[in-house]
Design a protein around this nucleic acid. Structure first.
Length: 508
DNA sequence: TTCCGACAGTGGGGTCGCAAT
DNA sequence: ATTGCGACCCCACTATCGGAA
């Protein structure tokens, strides 16, 4: 199959707003692809590369050769070139990679170039990723979507599942089963504003667990072989030897557990997230990193134990199996209750001890991997501040032509100026985007045609955020974590905004 | 007919490792 | 030694479609 066929369908999908229409278009193409190229087609049309990443991003694609007039490249040829690009490393690799990228784009028509550019930068923007592609695979193969979804849960990679469905049907899908050593898509959580609200959504008794501010891990053990995977299913075994040792020490040699690794201080309180993340990302001298910043592990779920798959069991039963197999010290602190007051107290205690909050879990739901079902609900405390908009950036994609991303500042009483604490684009409705584009152009202090539009510091905005962290980037040495807009404060002047001192008081 | 679950899109701060400067 | 870049750790929120109620 030619790349142009895929690029054309992608553009059609992007033009079609109906989800069913997108699915039809994708399914029609999947009906025409050969087995050998099916994984490539499925990957490209759900915005992925079979190579996962190839070391080419936005910056490496700045100037591209002229397009060809006639499309000739096959999917196989493109895939082979991308593999060669990925394989390049060592001195001079940048130049070699540039040359191969140029070769790739020189072989493409302008329509193909545009597709490749968006694919490589991860911004396909056709309104269809894995979720829609699952439906398309189902339609093209005739298999029920639920079967495709289940196979995807167990295999973790849609192109392989799609190929099996297209060329082996339901039987091939059913042949996928959980396999020790191959990661399963992790179960994700929704969020709620309070424990009471979360309990209400679940209805009746629920399990509450501390939400530790660390890195999610899924660990597999088969005999003495232990493998750890991150949330995106990358193999991080070498970075977390403490976890490997803890799992080897268990008296079970066939298991898959779900949990969190986190760096704790000697007094047992959690280190800032940055410390844990830095430790987990360190690969060059793990032994030294380990001496300086040891990791602890806490498990909260079991997907497989003693050769039995537990995915389909209710949460309460999976946890019972986990608690049987793992020492208390390795279990995430947990409370089972239906009482909102007891739940709120458990939440308050978790936060008092420095943790992120709690996750409220239904005792009934199976391990619904990869979907943000209502089985798990996270609850975190929320801070708010009234800050001043110092500048704003033009948006992209569906926000093109709108001023979108706000630069936020706190008042500095000592200088009379403002100290930038970060940016946010979250929480804005279309109506608000419309309004702020007009308003901020009025407040513009200098040219409005660049990427960033500087403003007179007059507009106050109420911002919610999860916490304050140390920042090497911003002048105050602090930045807000997960800031989002709640509302504009038309009743407040900039002189009444919150100060850097009130922000500093929130530093851990 | 209305409601709501799932999805996609739009980006945020921070860190590491590598290659180039 | 420093800088630029890609990748990936954490992530919140709104708009939209289409099936459920």
């Amino acid at each position: 199959m030619l790349l142009i066929d895929v690029a054309r369908v992608s553009e059609e999908v992007a033009r079609t707003s109906s989800r069913l229409g997108k699915i039809r278009l994708l399914a029609e193409l999947l009906g025409r692809v050969e087995a050998a190229e099916s994984e490539i087609a499925i990957a490209y049309l759900s915005g992925e590369l079979p190579q996962r990443q190839v070391g080419v991003g936005y910056r490496s694609l700045a100037d591209l050769p002229d397009p060809k007039q006639v499309a000739t490249m096959t999917l196989t040829e493109v895939d082979a070139l991308l593999s060669r690009i990925k394989a390049l490393s060592g001195a001079g690799s940048q130049a070699g990679r540039r040359a191969l990228v140029a070769e790739l784009f020189a072989g493409a028509t302008s329509q193909e170039q545009s597709f490749l550019l968006r694919l490589l930068t991860g911004e396909l923007r056709q309104g269809a990723l894995n979720g829609v592609m699952v439906e398309a695979v189902a339609q093209a193969s005739g298999a029920p979507a639920a079967e495709v979804r289940r196979a995807l849960t167990l295999r973790g990679w849609l192109p392989a599942v799609g190929r099996a469905a297209l060329f082996g049907g339901v039987e091939a899908l059913r042949a996928f089963r959980i396999e020790v050593g191959r990661p399963v898509s992790p179960m994700l959580a929704q969020s709620a504003p309070s424990v009471t609200a979360a309990l209400e959504r679940i209805g009746g008794e629920a399990a509450l667990e501390w939400k530790l501010d660390g890195v999610r891990v899924q660990v597999h053990r088969s005999g003495e072989a232990v493998t750890a995977f991150s949330r995106t299913l990358d193999d991080i075994t070498a970075q977390v030897p403490e976890l490997v040792e803890a799992v080897r020490a268990l008296p079970y040699d066939d298991l898959i557990l779900d949990g969190e690794v986190i760096a704790l201080r000697p007094d047992g309180r959690p280190q800032p997230f940055q410390v844990t993340a830095s430790r987990v990302a360190s690969r060059t001298d793990v032994e030294r990193a380990r001496r300086e910043t040891p990791l602890s592990v806490f498990f909260f779920d079991a997907l497989r134990l003693c050769g039995a798959d537990l995915l389909d069991l209710p949460g309460a039963e999976r946890h019972a199996a986990l608690a049987d197999a793992v020492p208390e010290a390795l279990l995430t602190p947990r409370l089972v209750t239906a009482d909102p007051a007891a739940g709120e107290e458990f939440f308050t205690e978790a936060v008092r001890r420095g943790h992120e909050g709690v996750v409220v879990k239904s005792p009934h739901t199976p391990y619904t991997a990869g979907r943000r079902g209502a089985g798990w609900i996270k609850v975190k405390p929320r801070h708010t501040l009234d800050l001043v908009v110092l500048a704003v950036e033009w948006g992209s994609g569906r926000r093109r032509g709108k001023l979108s991303n706000l630069h936020l500042g706190a008042r500095d009483p000592r200088t009379g100026g403002f100290v930038m604490l970060g940016k946010t684009f979250k929480g804005l409705t279309d109506e608000l985007l419309e309004w702020q584009t007009r308003r901020f152009l009025e407040l513009a202090d200098g040219p409005a045609d660049g990427w960033v539009v500087r403003m007179r510091p007059e507009q106050v905005v109420e911002v919610a955020f999860d916490g304050v962290q140390r920042s090497p980037r911003y002048p105050g040495g602090m930045a807000l974590r997960f800031a989002r807009v709640l509302r504009y404060r038309h009743d407040k002047r900039a002189e009444e905004a919150d100060t850097v001192d009130s922000v500093r008081a929130l530093m851990p």
